[in-house]
């Protein structure tokens, strides 16, 4: 079974973002960019399946600017076999990303597409579910375990609000990763070197016939209300006194 993995280039999760002074968006110039953490988990899962003989090939896809090549090289260094850059400087919304991935899935015919559950920049948590809808495939979202049974089904454990849910999905299907699925590896230097020689193809949304015109218009982007630091209390007694008499929450 071939696996397709979607990887997005985002502002590194450790970086504190700044809002542009004109409130038109977030200033991402000169910030450290990385692979979306949930997508690292997706790549790791796919590569493990390949190492375990449960998958035959891992293809990483990213939709974004030329620089998203770096993200794809990281996926290749982690163990993906090939990469596809769908190059565009536009900001592509989840529905359009899903349409692009659908077009690629039509060419590649994977047994499963693995995505992150959420991109940590737009925090949408939509793309995997949308792709599943467009392809008419079943979806296993927010998964913390996945085991392909070798007979065309994948058993997944999903993180839900009250606990865990186990589903059996017919392939081809869509999976989206949660934090507990695995711990992604660091790419070793030799693998980073090897990744430079792995194939990286490029295409565009236009070539795939997908209109990426945004449906949402961002009117403004602002700082959230600032929460002021309060007081440091000296003892448990003082804390209890304040919670009772000042905050009145006890």
């Amino acid at each position: 079974m071939k696996l397709l993995v979607a990887v997005k280039r985002v502002v590194d999760y450790n970086v504190k973002i700044r809002i542009k002074p004109d409130h038109t968006g977030v200033d991402t110039a000169n910030l450290k960019m990385s692979m979306n953490p949930f997508d690292e988990i997706a790549v790791e899962e796919a590569v493990r399946w390949k190492e375990q003989g449960k998958a035959t090939e891992v293809v990483a896809v990213s939709i974004g600017p030329q620089a998203a090549q770096d993200t794809l090289r990281t996926a290749l260094a982690m163990g993906a076999d090939r990469a596809i850059l769908v190059q565009t400087d536009a900001e592509v919304e989840p529905l359009a990303v899903a349409k692009i991935l659908k077009a690629i899935a039509a060419e590649e015919a994977p047994g499963a597409v693995i995505l992150g559950k959420q991109a940590i920049d737009d925090d949408s948590n939509q793309t995997g579910q949308m792709l599943a809808a467009l392809l008419g495939w079943p979806q296993g979202t927010f998964i913390s375990e996945a085991s392909p049974d070798g007979n065309g089904r994948i058993t997944v454990v999903r993180e839900i609000d009250g606990g865990l849910e186990t589903l059996s999905l017919a392939t081809p299907c869509i999976l989206t990763t949660d934090l507990r699925l695995n711990e992604p590896r660091y790419a070793s230097l030799p693998n980073i070197m090897k990744a430079k020689k792995k194939p990286l193809d490029a295409t565009t949304p236009e070539a795939l016939g997908v209109d990426v015109a945004p449906r949402l218009v961002t009117l403004k982007v602002e700082d959230p209300p600032h929460r002021k630091a309060g007081v440091i209390v000296a003892s448990v007694d003082e804390l209890v006194e304040k919670l009772k008499n000042e905050a009145k929450v006890l």
Binding site: E93, P94, L95, A98, D123, S124, N125, Q126, T127, G128, Q129, M130, L131, A132, A133, L134, Q139, T141, F142, R158, E159, I160, D161, P214, R215, L216
Partner: peptide, 23 residues
């Protein structure tokens, strides 16, 4: 925006060609 809402609504949105507004 519960686990269920997050699971179901984007699937619906794509089926009717709508870009969801999350959370």
């Amino acid at each position: 925006a519960t686990a269920t809402g997050k699971n179901v609504m984007p699937r619906l949105a794509a089926l009717i060609d709508v870009q969801q507004v999350s959370e």
